[in-house]
Design a protein around this nucleic acid. Structure first.
Lengths: 202, 202
DNA sequence: GTCTATAACCGGATAGAC
DNA sequence: GTCTATCCGGTTATAGAC
């Protein structure tokens, strides 16, 4: 019934590379089939539809991204560098052999006017993870909250941390989207802004 | 031979709304035809191809965007507010009845793996205009250049102004792309960061 | 002369049958 | 794994209405 593990990996490799560099709509399913070296029947046995394949490729990519990011965080020496590690991770992730032109998740969100549920879910999960992780990384960097400021967002971080986290999220998102304007765009600008924001949040 | 002015406008209205909200690939040419209330023959008399229609719609949108932005700049009271006016313009532009979910130019760049020349040109023109205008708006905000700093980028602004301009470009781009993550996203975050950057550039 | 309506062509894409 | 039914999208041709 199910397809072989190695076959699934080859299909996901092909899907990842083709969908997220050339675009989903622009990539015929035949191109994925050919790249993966499987037959159409095999693909449709493993994945009920093109959309399901997209969702599965996004899911795997999300896990790889979190791995890359965690590794960058682990290399960092202090709280500030841990927060800035997201930019190292972006550099690392972009330098991978197969990759998207900018961001697979934003790209998918952009392609679908309204995405099918499985795809929308994958995209939303990525944004949520980015936001909550950035807020947590921002927490140790902000000045301790004042006594008369009791507001807390849902995730338990105080509002200064969530603000800095959301600012970092905008920078990350901006850095990714800048790659659409200039393909060679690097993280220097976003990183520089982040340093200024961190300094001013202390 | 040529098509009537009003017919052209109706076609561009339809193209703008459909292409940039639902996506270009996702919008069949028939949908544009129906919305505009013209026949296929008329469309193809006015525009040689779907891509040409895309490029023309982008061109018109670019002009409208610059108009909106200029109006926002004209309303501003001082140099700092003039630089921040781009965020007012983003708010104004987004509140228009027909609009894209995020940014027509970035969206088009994202859709085409490699865009046809006419489309690529329209997208590039938008990025270039954004960058050079933001650099110029940043110029009066930066500390006067020191004597031993003679570097100047091509556009004649000094490197501090171009840096601040490029930072603003990243914020604008990030604000636009954030609308993909949360549809209701507002410019507050980007604007706040911009203020911090301006303060620290003085 | 500008437009509409209709329909047909053709490449390509999904999906499923064999 | 191949092959094919079916559909859909972009484009063009024809004929006629205002």
């Amino acid at each position: 019934m199910a397809i072989r593990e190695s076959t699934e990996q080859r299909l996901l490799d092909a899907a990842d590379d083709l969908f997220f560099t050339r675009g989903i709509a622009a990539t015929p399913i035949d191109a994925v089939i050919e790249r993966a070296g499987v037959s159409a029947a095999t693909l449709y046995r493993g994945f009920p539809s093109k959309e399901a394949l997209v969702a599965a490729a996004l899911e795997r990519r999300h896990l790889e991204w979190i791995e890359t990011w965690d590794a960058a965080i682990a290399r960092a020496a202090d709280d500030e560098e841990r927060a800035l590690a997201v930019f190292d991770a972006l550099d690392d992730f972009r330098d991978r052999p197969i990759g998207s032109r900018w961001c697979a998740f934003l790209g998918t969100a952009a392609e679908y006017g309204d995405a099918p549920p499985e795809v929308a879910e994958a995209v939303r999960r990525d944004s949520d993870a980015l936001r909550s992780r950035l807020r947590n990384l921002a927490a140790p960097l902000v000045a301790p909250r004042s006594r008369d400021d009791r507001r807390r967002p849902d995730d338990g971080t105080d509002h200064r941390a969530s603000r800095l986290g959301d600012e970092l999220l905008l920078l990350v998102t901006g850095d990714l989207a800048m790659r659409l304007r200039e393909p060679g765009h690097r993280t220097d600008t976003a990183r520089g802004i982040a340093r200024v924001l961190i300094a001013s949040a202390r």
